[in-house]
């Protein structure tokens, strides 16, 4: 049962993802922003973190870097509205397993995406 943390400041997005993943028997937690996420990550361990890039206070990028240094075994998927090629490359370099573009084509694909990322 993979443990997944979804971090996004837009509640409707994080709850949608959580709903879909829960259906696929994942244990899902959510956080509203980077600060909250880091607090949770320090206490608990997760197999996968789904991060939104642009968030108030501490953004996805910083969380990614923290995870990369402190929880190298945790996989990270980043979500962003920016389709910038350079950004994607940069995120991958910093440890992201996958970069997803928002809005998603089909949110119901998420379980598969998670599965692929955990491989």
């Amino acid at each position: 049962m993979p443990r997944v943390l979804v971090v996004d400041d837009e509640k409707i997005i994080s709850s949608s993802i959580a709903r879909v993943l829960a259906r696929a028997a994942h244990t899902v937690s959510t956080a509203n922003n980077g600060l909250e996420a880091l607090a949770i990550l320090q206490k608990e361990s997760f197999d996968l973190v789904i991060l939104d890039l642009l968030m108030p206070e501490i953004g996805g990028g910083e969380v990614l870097d923290w995870l990369h240094s402190n929880r190298p075994q945790t996989r990270v998927i980043l979500m962003t509205a920016y389709g910038d090629q350079h950004l994607k490359e940069d995120l991958h370099r910093r440890g992201a397993a996958r970069v997803l573009a928002k809005p998603f084509d089909d949110i119901l694909q998420f379980p598969k995406i998670v599965e692929d990322a955990l491989k």
Partner: peptide, 14 residues
């Protein structure tokens, strides 16, 4: 607008 739209789309799909 991106985020809310993504949310609406995702929720409606769900």
């Amino acid at each position: 607008i991106n985020n809310p739209i993504a949310g609406i789309l995702a929720t409606s799909q769900i």
